[in-house]
Design a protein around this nucleic acid. Structure first.
Length: 679
DNA sequence: TTGCCTCGAGATCA
DNA sequence: CTCGAGGCAA
């Protein structure tokens, strides 16, 4: 027995090395799995023989903290949505216009229709046909490197089945957990006295983020389906449908339901058929994705910052459920706004259990005639946020109708937290607590100040903020910087170590930058963007405090509302005192940090320049536009004094004349390319 | 908004 | 063992 265990350990270690270091596994994942499981089983049976150097005990090869991040080869964008057939038709009109189709010819546009998989978006990189890296979507620019986990997903080929694979291929697709696998995985988890997963989507996304004790059963039940090739597409392919075929030949699973539709009406019919087949599919889907099939047309249309213009996600109607509105609670936000929140009898909808939903404001409650005790219909809109659709008036109980139970509770005239009078300004939907020192506002402001894009105070979370305010340790924002180990002792879950950590975090947070400070203050209408603008314009806090309202209002991108709010804040004596106190308590402003464009992004040769295109260019306009935007420039439609360059192709239109009139420089394509190249 | 994962550290019990 | 914080994904 001892011998067999030693043998297995050596084998597993050897294959680990082949797999992770050499990138040349000899065993299939399944065979490796068998080996490893035998070892685990024997060790479990004979705990006496378990040693710490066994590969089953090892976490070594994995990063100690979280996953590394890595940039995507090109941004992973999202898709525009259509919620109904009319929005689909509007999409088709946009497409036709961009392709300059005369009316009536639109039926000639081919769309590839693919089920919209409800999983987790992933990019796989193949170098010379070998799987080398897999990333989550992340923020679209940068994702988490989950390669180690993806190597155990059976439908991700280790090698592309290609004669002559591209140097680099970037295959994008979705990781899903098929329903059958979800069921058996949960059965097995229950058998092992683990909590079953709530829904396949979260189980799949969670599987990718495991870092210890890779769960082979879990990863083995995932499925990857490919849907695009962001890099490495052979030049002879000119349609999305051909790319899908290629991915299939390379060894990827492609959704079998995929079809090409001619024109929008056919697309709408496909979508309806898919909806009725939804329940019979092996994986969860939440709509249909339509892409313009021809790649030259995609290029002509181009891509916006957020999403390509040549694709759309036609979503299925959101799942709805009925439940009882048990109470309406009133929350006080950072700005003092009172928000009514529905407390619901928990109900499953769209794979999760919903028990809260915002009711937004008083008008909303009245418009829908929502009363405590009502049966209401809820749905999850836009994938995420639960909303109250309507009241089931036919199910309204007599006692609710007659108002014997608490009905249609208006937002109170007194703040539920501090009892100060509330106000609702003429023409505004929000009701506010007028007390600037309201503890609820203070708590939220403190949370905001501690947030990652503000002063970034590590470890200062919601519970701690509650305690600090309730204990009276913080009565205004600057008080956080007066905290010390002594004052913290006595708070819940606050031992010596936690206290020291918080003090250290505050010490780090004391050194910050002007934009972060301006954002951290929670000035109305000042988010990260406006804070940056203000900091760019004024440079120092002293300048900021000395700024005249007209100067603030004159900043490009800042309108009268924001300017008014900023000026008022800066003029307020108690705010000025607060700012001074921050300084006294050690807050210092360092030079502004590098803009996020810093390291990996090449220098932006066209930064801030505005272009107008005219005439026939050698490439589709969308392409030219993309390359200008990729270099940091902007392309607009009309020539004005703000235009920096007009790019003129073959027989230019009136825009070239206008440019000449306004004295705007005119470039040909050669000139443009030189400019992009940085000359 | 919910569900998932990880980490550090406090709380609890043998 | 449990909790709080933090991060990620839809």
């Amino acid at each position: 027995m001892r011998l067999r265990i030693a043998e297995l350990r050596d084998e597993v270690l050897r294959h680990d090395a082949l797999y992770y270091q050499e990138d040349a596994p000899e065993l299939s994942d399944a065979d490796y799995d068998v080996l490893r499981r035998e070892l685990v089983a024997l060790e479990t049976e004979h705990p006496g023989l378990l040693t710490s150097d066994s590969p089953t005990q090892r976490v070594g090869a994995l990063p100690a903290e979280g996953f590394d991040t890595a940039p995507h080869r090109s941004p992973m964008l999202s898709l525009d949505n259509a919620m109904n057939a009319d929005e689909m038709r509007a999409f088709e009109v946009r497409v036709s216009k961009l392709l300059e189709h005369p009316d009536g010819e639109s039926s000639s546009i081919d769309f590839v229709a693919e089920p919209k998989l409800d999983g987790s978006g992933i990019e796989l990189i193949y170098a010379k046909g070998v799987f080398v890296q897999g990333l989550t979507r992340g923020d679209g620019q940068t994702g988490e490197d989950v390669t180690v986990n993806l190597r155990h997903v059976p439908s991700i080929p280790e090698r592309l089945a290609a004669e002559d694979p591209p140097e680099i291929a970037s295959v994008r697709g979705e990781i899903v957990l098929p329903l059958a696998a979800f069921e058996s995985l949960n059965a097995s988890r229950v058998g092992r006295e683990l909590k079953p997963f709530e829904n396949p989507r979260n189980a799949a996304a969670g599987s990718l983020r495991q870092i210890h004790d890779i769960d082979f059963e879990r990863l083995g039940s995932l499925e990857f389906r490919g849907y695009s090739l962001a890099e490495g597409c052979p030049a002879e392919l000119d349609r999305q449908s051909q790319i899908l075929d290629l991915l299939g030949r390379w060894g990827f699973i492609i959704s079998p339901e995929i079809e090409t539709c001619h024109g929008v009406e056919e697309a709408i019919r496909f979508h309806e058929q898919l909806l009725s087949a939804r329940g019979d599919l092996p994986v969860e889907i939440d709509g249909t994705v339509f892409k313009v099939d021809r790649i030259d047309q995609q290029e002509t249309m181009g891509t916006l910052a957020r999403a390509p213009r040549w694709a759309i996600a036609f979503k299925f109607p959101p799942e709805q459920a009925e439940t009882v509105l048990e109470d309406i609670e009133v929350q006080v936000g950072r700005t003092g706004a009172l928000t009514p929140v529905a407390r619901l009898r928990p109900v499953r909808v769209g794979g999760v259990t919903v028990s809260n939903a915002s009711l937004h404001n008083q008008d909303e409650i009245e418009r829908k005639d929502i009363r405590i005790g009502d049966w209401i219909m809820i749905q999850r809109a836009g994938d995420v946020i639960p909303q109250v659709v309507r009241v089931r008036l036919d199910r309204r109980h007599e006692s609710v109708a007659e108002g014997r139970r608490l009905v249609r509770r208006a937002l109170p005239s007194q703040c539920p937290v501090c009892d100060s009078p509330t106000v609702r300004l003429e023409g505004e939907a929000v009701t506010r607590c007028a007390n600037l020192d309201c503890p609820a506002q203070l708590k939220n402001n403190l949370r905001h100040l501690a947030g990652r894009s503000a002063l970034d105070v590590d470890g200062l979370g919601e519970k701690l903020v509650d305690q600090l305010v309730e204990a009276g340790l913080v009565t205004r924002l600057s008080d956080v910087f007066a905290l010390d180990e002594d004052s913290l002792s006595g708070l819940e879950r606050m031992g010596a170590k936690s206290a020291a950590n918080l003090i250290a975090a505050l010490e780090r947070a004391r050194e910050t930058t002007l934009p972060r400070l301006l954002f951290a203050l929670g000035i109305r209408h000042v988010g990260q963007t406006v804070a940056e603008l203000l900091a760019d314009r004024f440079g120092t806090l002293a300048e900021m405090l000395a700024a005249r309202p007209e100067e603030v209002a004159a900043i490009e991108g800042i309108g009268p509302t924001i300017a008014e709010s900023v000026s008022r804040f800066m003029a307020d004596p108690s705010n000025r005192e607060e700012l001074a106190r921050f300084g006294e308590l050690g807050l210092v402003l360092a030079a502004p940090e590098e803009k996020p464009s810093g390291e990996d992004v090449p220098p932006q040769s066209l930064d801030g320049l505005i272009f107008v295109l005219t005439g026939t260019l050698s490439r589709p306009r969308g392409e030219v536009k993309n390359s200008i935007e990729a270099a940091g420039g902007k392309v607009t439609g009309t020539v004005s004094r703000k235009t920096h360059y007009v790019v003129a192709g073959e027989d230019p239109g009136s825009k070239a004349r206008k440019a000449a009139d306004l004295g705007v420089e005119i470039l040909d394509e050669t000139g443009l390319n030189a400019l992009i190249a940085g000359e």
